[in-house]
Amino acid sequence: MGLSIKHNHFAVKHSRLSSKIDFGEKWYDIKCSKEYWDEIKPIFDKLQNYKNDKKIWKELKNKENEIYLPILKAFKDEIIRQEKNNISTLLVKYLIGKFDFYKMISVDKEKVTKIQSYNHLGTLNKNAKTITIPGCCFAR
């Protein structure tokens, strides 16, 4: 049985973009293009320079335009380039997982633990659904 245990959030995946991770290969078995790597290299080089200069992230003034937006644009452009390979189904399979699983989420504000089933392959209990257990927080 697969379990995913979360504390105060409901995300299914926490995927990362980086200067080394080939998200295409990892997510849907098709390597990212040279164009993608060429687009992100100067952005991650800039981040490395900030790190070398011991700059503190919260003190960077223009990170939205310098870092976030260019990386997201490169990511979007790569997804569009890769769509010629019909990656939509593969991407959805990556996002919801290769196996059925239960996700437990401790929600401090509500003082509950929620259990959700992800039964897209039909290997879990046929009546699997989200349940809430009052007063139960396992993440303490």
Rank of each mutant, 00 (worst) to 15 (best):
K61H: 06
K76C: 13
G2Y: 03
D45L: 02
K55S: 09
F44I: 07
I67E: 04
Y50P: 13
N52V: 09
R16F: 05
R81K: 08
Y68H: 09
G122Y: 04
E110S: 14
V112T: 14
V92T: 12
S18E: 05
D22T: 13
I40W: 00
T132D: 10
D53Q: 12
W57R: 12
K31Q: 08
S18W: 03
Y94H: 15
Y118L: 11
L91A: 12
V92K: 08
M1E: 12
P42H: 02
Y68A: 11
K129S: 13
T132V: 15
S33H: 00
I71V: 15
G122A: 07
Y118G: 03
S4K: 06
I30G: 03
E25D: 09
I131L: 07
D100M: 08
N119F: 04
L3W: 02
G122E: 08
L90G: 14
D53V: 04
I43W: 00
I79E: 05
K6H: 09
P134C: 10
K58R: 11
P42T: 01
N125R: 12
I43Y: 01
L60Q: 05
L95P: 11
N125I: 10
T130M: 06
K34L: 07
K84W: 00
E25H: 06
A11H: 11
S15E: 12
E78T: 00
I71M: 10
K109W: 03
S88M: 06
S106P: 08
E83V: 06
H7Y: 05
D45P: 12
G24K: 01
G122N: 07
L47W: 01
K84F: 00
K13T: 15
H14D: 15
N62K: 03
G97P: 14
D29A: 14
D108F: 00
K114P: 15
K129A: 08
Y118M: 13
I67L: 09
N86F: 02
S33W: 01
F101E: 08
Y28D: 10
Q48N: 13
D53T: 05
N8E: 09
M1N: 12
W37T: 13
A128N: 02
I43R: 02
D77Q: 10
N86Q: 10
N52Q: 06
K20N: 14
F23M: 06
L72W: 01
K109C: 06
I30Q: 03
K76P: 10
I80K: 10
K51V: 06
N86H: 04
K111T: 07
H7I: 09
T130F: 00
D108Y: 02
L121F: 10
D53Y: 00
L17N: 02
G97E: 04
G97K: 03
S33Y: 00
L17S: 01
G122C: 11
L60S: 04
Q48W: 02
S19G: 14
G97L: 03
P42E: 02
